[in-house]
Amino acid sequence: MDYLKAFLIGGAICAVVQILLDKTKLLPGRVMVILVCLGSLLGAIGIYEPFSKWAGAGATVPLTGFGNALFKGIKEALTEEGFIGLFKGGFTASAVGISAALIFSYIASLIFNPKMKE
């Protein structure tokens, strides 16, 4: 059941974004920014967290989930540590994703060479 939910919800989010891409000519970079900001906003108003509890990976794998995690991190850090948490929680929550992307990409740059498109 959780697989079906992940497929349907994750797929639906991607489908909506595809409409955005095709209809507005927004560049992919902008779309990624919009998704993260949107996720963090939906997290802040308390919608995304219950949604992702229900939808599982369908909600956490898309970048909106990344945005939600950022806010969640800040909220937790605020409750635990007060003001300084504002500057700490975001990176703490996103640490695994960003570090993994940077470190693995660096290693990839050592292994792989640029390739021509066919």
Partner: peptide, 18 residues
């Protein structure tokens, strides 16, 4: 050159886009 032009004007070649 396709690759040089893509790199300069658009995206790195391994970047996924339509």
């Amino acid at each position: 050159h396709f690759a040089g032009a893509e790199k300069q004007f658009r995206f790195p070649l391994a970047y996924g886009n339509q």
